[in-house]
Lab assay of single mutants.
Amino acid sequence: QRITLKDYAMRFGQTKTAKDLGVYQSAINKAIHAGRKIFLTINADGSVYAEEVKDGEVKPFPS
């Protein structure tokens, strides 16, 4: 399943989102408010992988 960072954070909370991605909650808040195009893939085992689309390139998040 693929979902935006904002939607994932709204569904699970910023604290869990940060923990799942290995970053601080403040980084999640800042990324959402900056309007960054970050998409999360939720794997069947429950693990989460995030990618950011920037300038036409897709890069892992966090980099």
Rank of each mutant, 00 (worst) to 15 (best):
H33K: 13
I3C: 09
G56E: 07
Y49G: 06
F39C: 08
V48R: 03
T15G: 11
D7Q: 07
R2G: 08
R2E: 06
T4C: 07
G13I: 01
S26V: 10
P62E: 05
T41D: 05
D55L: 07
K37H: 14
Q25N: 09
F61M: 03
K30F: 08
Q14D: 12
I3H: 07
Q1E: 15
H33A: 15
D20T: 07
E52I: 04
T17E: 01
T4E: 09
A9G: 03
R2N: 07
Q25P: 15
Y8N: 00
E52A: 02
Q14S: 13
A31L: 14
T4Y: 04
L21K: 00
R2L: 10
G22S: 06
R11H: 09
Q1W: 05
S63W: 06
K30E: 15
A31G: 03
I3F: 11
R2P: 09
G22L: 05
A44N: 12
Q1N: 14
E51I: 10
G35I: 03
F12P: 00
K54V: 15
R36E: 05
D55I: 06
V58S: 10
S63C: 11
T15A: 14
A18T: 03
S63H: 11
V58C: 08
G22N: 10
K37L: 14
Q14P: 15
L5I: 06
P62F: 04
T15L: 13
T4L: 08
I28P: 00
D45M: 05
F61E: 02
L5V: 02
D20M: 10
K30P: 04
A34T: 12
A50W: 03
Y49A: 09
L21R: 00
A50M: 03
Y24G: 15
S47P: 03
K16C: 05
V53M: 11
V23E: 03
D20R: 06
R2W: 15
V58P: 07
A50R: 00
A9T: 11
Q25V: 15
V48P: 02
K19A: 13
G46Y: 05
T41K: 05
G56W: 06
T4P: 14
S47A: 08
L5H: 00
V48D: 00
K37N: 12
R36S: 08
K54H: 12
I38M: 01
I38S: 00
H33D: 13
Y49Q: 09
E57L: 13
L21I: 07
N29S: 14
G56R: 06
K6R: 12
D20Q: 09
D7H: 05
I32Q: 02
G35T: 05
R36D: 06
D20L: 11
Y24E: 15
I28S: 00
S47G: 08
A50E: 00
P62S: 04
K54D: 12
V23F: 04
D45L: 05
Q25C: 09
A31T: 04
K59N: 09
G35Q: 11
F12Y: 14
A34F: 08
D7I: 04
N43T: 12
V53G: 04
Q14T: 15
S26Q: 10
I28N: 00
G35P: 03
Y24A: 15
P60G: 06
Q1H: 09
D55G: 10
K16R: 09
A44I: 11
A9L: 14
G46F: 06
I3E: 06
D55P: 06
Q14K: 10
A27W: 11
